[in-house]
Design a protein around this nucleic acid. Sequence first.
DNA 1: GTTCGATATTGAAACGATTAAATACAGCGA
DNA 2: TCGCTGTATTTAATCGTTTCAATATCGAAC
Lengths: 385, 385
Amino acid sequence: MKSQSLQFKPQTPDDSAAGGASLKRQNGENQAVTMRDVAKSSGFSPATVSIVLNNAPLARYIAPATKKRIEVAAKKLGYRPNAMARFLRSKRSHSVGVMFFDITDPFCTPVLRGIENALYQCSYVPIFADAHNQKNRFERYLEMLLEHHVEALIVVANWLFVDIQLLADLSKRNITAATIGWEMPGDAVSSVMVDNEAGGRLALEHLHQMGHRKIAFIRGPKMLIDSAPRWKGIQKFAHSAGMTIDPALVLQLPDSFDPNSGFEGGFRFTEELLQRKKRFTALVAFDDLTALGAIRALTKAGVNVPENCSVVGFDDVPLSALSAPSLTTVRQPLEAMGNLAVNIVMEGVNARLEKRDWNTSRHKMNPELVIRDSTRAVALSGSDD
Amino acid sequence: MKSQSLQFKPQTPDDSAAGGASLKRQNGENQAVTMRDVAKSSGFSPATVSIVLNNAPLARYIAPATKKRIEVAAKKLGYRPNAMARFLRSKRSHSVGVMFFDITDPFCTPVLRGIENALYQCSYVPIFADAHNQKNRFERYLEMLLEHHVEALIVVANWLFVDIQLLADLSKRNITAATIGWEMPGDAVSSVMVDNEAGGRLALEHLHQMGHRKIAFIRGPKMLIDSAPRWKGIQKFAHSAGMTIDPALVLQLPDSFDPNSGFEGGFRFTEELLQRKKRFTALVAFDDLTALGAIRALTKAGVNVPENCSVVGFDDVPLSALSAPSLTTVRQPLEAMGNLAVNIVMEGVNARLEKRDWNTSRHKMNPELVIRDSTRAVALSGSDD
DNA sequence: GTTCGATATTGAAACGATTAAATACAGCGA
DNA sequence: TCGCTGTATTTAATCGTTTCAATATCGAAC
């Protein structure tokens, strides 16, 4: 009974001239429907189907009726082009490699969102890679991405150690690439960064406006590209405002590969600062995690934030809005940065496609001060030694 | 001069019988090196190269010397197999679709890490998709993933609305799939969940042991699959411990698509609870974000956490450890869940490959209580009315 | 001196699309 | 009638692999 109902299918309107292939399709019941099927079903050749469905240049000459019939057939069969086969011929994989240096860094999530969203608009898929801060993992992933023939590569790296190999490999295969939060030496790779110097200035300017003069600083690790310009912005503003920075109130985080070590570092270094018995009414942390660690240490020592000490972070990672107290911070437009990186590499991809010339570019986006609850005007109550 | 040095390349040890193809390669300088190149260079046929490099069954018969020569040649030329061409023949794309319902939910990052890590072990790449909680986006991505012929699909969904279409599409194309944080009706899709009921029990048990008896609850939205079992676990424990739950101290979050609305909801509903003037010494929140919102509201109202009120969350998202006070919570082994999901679908992929039978499965992982600073034994100071 | 079973290697046909070049047929002016 | 241009469609090569089936060599066994 059952086998009978399998043999005599109720409806086979199109596969009338069914050969072995068609039989197989009946058995398998899960075979993908191919362009050949659409061709057969619509009564045209695969070439015509391809031309119509891709709206290729030659589609100008295809009769409207033909187009309609093919489109209808494709829809009815549920035809989906095979991206691999298409790639093999056309060299377009419709995928982009997206490499993070450590996705557990809260900095990354909004960037990922921005990248994903922009790629989605172009019908590109992101191939996700996370280097876990390990060089060999980075290289292995690079290998895998090249095998998958991504059309472009976006590297999100706040920690560094990308070596020249990356550059060489990419230009050899001429894959357009962009970095976010990090710049390569030379001009082979585009980059998107925040204007760190402006950001440093914003942070200090804010505290200065609030009347703070005795300010502690926890600087970023030397190996982070962001550290130096942020500090420079701070120094420049201090100079222009006639402030002096007390070296006894300045500490610098050690180099480390763990992005979440910022919290731990902020905590420990703030305790260290407190032990020095030098008064300060505000603290500028290298980034938000450091700031949160600092707040933890201050609170533990009985110094309330913001009543007794203001704290400013940097980045505006998502949790900064949720912390208690919520964090005043210098915002990086992370999602927009992801977006921009996609636009950049897409421009490159299209340029190569149309054999246009195209130059890499470096972008510095404007940071923005976000004032929340961790900063307050300095207390007027005299006790300022 | 320059063109001369291009014409007479210093070293061409292998491409001796160079035809037009080889010339093109010299010009292009960026042409991918193909298997044919390796074959030519090593002096064997492409077939042999393929067999050796993939360690295919027939490799048993290949002479060790041959293997070595081919491997050396491949390495020297920097040969990388073309994943697309390979797929076209072998039907193996070495990629897995990873669909999130909203990557900005902090719940997702550790899951993503777990998935990525497990896939990396198998040399599979994840194709990342984020539905932004939108059904049509989900469907469009599904389409794209199918075009790219992912071998499996992992869906991370704490919010629901996956319809039957997913199931149909997948089984039609027989792609093995697994969900994390959500179960499909029927048995077409495997799932990995935390044991929510056990988790609810853990939370209440902890507070009970600390002496709390007047406890407020903020339940999860009805449409979340997690809500009901967590509440059931709470009720069961209350019953077994002889506690009574005061309905006036129970609120339920409204349905919403924004995962970060939990914070807002926790804040508002805690204010609502405080206005009711019913004393409570502890609060169980649906999840960590809700708990953080609750803490914010309590603190704002002058109720210190944990001195005057303990708060327990659920999930143990990364920021729970960093919040002030750090959050006592019921931990979901998120990374392990991602890992497990990969193992499940890989098992399915291999089963189909070897034409073995294979059944979908449902997993409930054990939650774990993480005690931090937001809970404390109930104050003994008499004022417990 | 065939036949056989291993061992070692290769030829050639897929896989499912794209696309340059070819074909077929109008209509039309010379 | 011929050639030309434009429209409409198809043929066939190609992309870079994988893999089935075929070939070749060589002792060993009958």
